[in-house]
Amino acid sequence: MNPINFVILAAILFSIGSAAVLLRRNAIVAFMGVELMLNAANLALVAFSRIHGQLDGQVMAFFVMVVAAAEVVVGLAIIIALFRARQTISLDEPAELKG
């Protein structure tokens, strides 16, 4: 089976993740949607790596994982700080960005 199918799978996972970010108001769930999008990209990278028979894609995916780990750490810290300040993690609450 052609590895391109994994890229299609990655596209589907990516759109599911993006829909989650748009729809879920729980900040942690939305954040998980972001993680899913990152992983979809990783899957695409690995699939391309397989298609081209080179390891660069895998290394890229590895880097993405590192960046994602850093992002998770900081993002969750922000969510905790938000929760401490407002006793909620709903994304609709922090409407201070309102112009």
Partner: peptide
């Protein structure tokens, strides 16, 4: 938007034909 992205990407990917190289 989610459907649009999925549709766009899949429509492109469905049209490409690639011969995978030998795996490393």
């Amino acid at each position: 938007t989610a459907g649009g992205i999925a549709f766009l990407l899949i429509s492109v990917l469905g049209r490409v034909s690639i011969a995978p190289q030998a795996a490393r």
